[in-house]
């Protein structure tokens, strides 16, 4: 059975200046998520994620995991790919790309 995927598309980098809005907007999607569904964070427009941004992503993954759901993260930047491996975010969510 195909899992229903809810997608949030970030318009740019996830930094301390944007992480609050990012969390607020994704939280609204999480509120509608059920356990068999997937949250997809499309970060292909992002080239940078700073510590506050990472904190927001970790909070999102935790909130989604608490619901029994899963998170996919789409990325296009090599740096983000490295960052996901370095921070071991790739052990907590499915990283797709680049």
């Amino acid at each position: 059975m195909t899992q229903k995927i809810h997608t949030y598309t970030a318009s740019g980098d996830i930094l301390s200046t944007t992480a609050g809005t990012f969390w607020d907007e994704v939280s609204k999607i999480i509120d509608t998520l059920s356990s068999s569904e997937v949250l997809r964070l499309d970060l292909r427009a992002s080239t940078m994620v700073d510590s506050v941004g990472l904190n927001a992503v970790v909070k999102i993954i935790r909130a989604v995991s608490d619901l029994g759901s899963k998170v996919q993260i789409l990325i296009a930047s090599d740096y983000l790919k490295k960052l996901c491996a370095f921070t071991r975010l790739d052990e907590k969510a499915e990283i797709i790309g680049p």
């Binding site: 990472l54 904190n55 992503v57 970790v58 993954i61 370095f86 921070t87 071991r88 052990e91 907590k92």
Partner: peptide
Amino acid sequence: TASADGMIQ
């Protein structure tokens, strides 16, 4: 420290 479940997090 910098990992998603590290000391800082």
